[in-house]
Amino acid sequence: MSIQHFRVALIPFFAAFCLPVFAHPETLVKVKDAEDQLGARVGYIELDLNSGKILESFRPEERFPMMSTFKVLLCGAVLSRVDAGQEQLGRRIHYSQNDLVEYSPVTEKHLTDGMTVRELCSAAITMSDNTAANLLLTTIGGPKELTAFLHNMGDHVTRLDRWEPELNEAIPNDERDTTMPAAMATTLRKLLTGELLTLASRQQLIDWMEADKVAGPLLRSALPAGWFIADKSGAGERGSRGIIAALGPDGKPSRIVVIYTTGSQATMDERNRQIAEIGASLIKHW
Rank of each mutant, 00 (worst) to 15 (best):
L197G: 11
V42T: 08
W208Y: 11
T147I: 05
V117C: 01
D155F: 11
E56H: 10
T126H: 13
E108T: 06
G239E: 01
E102R: 00
L219H: 09
D161Q: 03
A245Y: 10
S281C: 01
F64Q: 03
W227P: 10
G90M: 03
K190W: 14
G279F: 15
Q274R: 12
P165L: 01
E145H: 12
A133E: 01
D212L: 01
P25M: 03
T267G: 11
T178V: 13
G216C: 15
I283A: 08
G234D: 14
D83C: 02
E62I: 07
H156Q: 08
V78N: 00
R118E: 07
L219I: 09
L100R: 03
G239V: 05
L135S: 06
K284A: 03
G90C: 01
D212E: 15
P105A: 06
G85H: 14
M66S: 06
L55E: 06
G251C: 14
L137H: 02
E119C: 00
G239R: 06
D161L: 03
A34Q: 00
E164P: 00
A280N: 03
R162A: 00
M127I: 08
A40K: 03
H285C: 01
A222P: 14
A34R: 05
A225E: 10
E62L: 09
M184E: 11
R255E: 14
A77T: 02
K71R: 11
L282H: 09
I244Y: 09
A211H: 05
E46G: 03
L192W: 14
L79K: 02
N98G: 10
A34C: 10
Q203R: 05
K30Q: 11
T139I: 12
G52H: 12
H156S: 10
I229M: 13
W227G: 08
R220M: 07
L197F: 01
E56C: 01
L47I: 03
A211F: 14
K53C: 01
K32L: 06
A245S: 12
H110S: 02
E46H: 10
M153Q: 09
L167V: 01
S201L: 00
G52R: 10
E108P: 10
E210H: 14
L223A: 06
K144S: 02
L219G: 09
D48W: 05
T69R: 03
L188W: 15
S233K: 12
E175C: 02
E61G: 01
H24N: 09
M180L: 10
A215L: 02
A84N: 02
Q97K: 04
L167Y: 02
V257L: 15
R238P: 00
H156E: 13
K71E: 13
A182V: 07
P253M: 06
L197P: 12
F64I: 08
E175F: 05
E62N: 08
E169W: 00
C75V: 04
A123F: 03
F64C: 02
L120Q: 04
S96F: 06
V106W: 08
P143A: 04
R81Y: 11
N130D: 14
I93M: 00
G234C: 13
L100F: 02
A148T: 07
I140R: 02
N50A: 09
D113A: 09
D207Q: 05
G251Q: 12
E270M: 08
E35K: 11
T187A: 06
L150K: 03
S221E: 14
R63I: 02
E166C: 04
W227S: 06
E210P: 06
K144N: 04
L223C: 02
R238V: 00
D113M: 11
L282Y: 14
R273C: 10
P172Y: 02
E164T: 09
L282T: 04
H151N: 07
N130L: 10
A276E: 15
M66N: 05
A132Q: 09
A40R: 04
Y95P: 14
I125R: 03
D129T: 02
D83S: 02
E26R: 03
K32Y: 08
I54Q: 06
L191G: 13
A225L: 10
W227E: 08
R162I: 05
I278F: 14
F228G: 15
A84F: 03
L89D: 05
I256P: 10
G43S: 13
L188K: 15
M184D: 10
I229R: 12
L218S: 15
L150F: 01
D231M: 15
D269A: 09
D155C: 08
R41K: 15
I206L: 10
I243A: 07
M127D: 12
K190Q: 13
A182D: 12
M115G: 04
F149L: 08
G154C: 02
L192Q: 14
Y103H: 10
I259E: 08
H151T: 06
D269P: 13
A235G: 00
I93E: 01
S128R: 08
G142D: 01
L218Y: 14
S281G: 11
Q274K: 07
S51K: 02
K71S: 14
P181Q: 10
W208H: 05
N130Y: 09
R41C: 07
R63C: 07
H156K: 10
V78T: 01
Y95W: 15
E62R: 06
G43F: 01
G234P: 05
G239C: 14
A215Q: 14
M268P: 15
F58G: 03
H285K: 07
P224E: 12
P25R: 00
I140M: 10
V258Q: 07
S254Y: 01
L47W: 00
E195N: 00
G43T: 07
V258G: 06
I125M: 13
E87P: 06
V82H: 01
R255L: 04
E87G: 03
T187W: 00
R92N: 09
R176T: 02
I125G: 08
A132P: 02
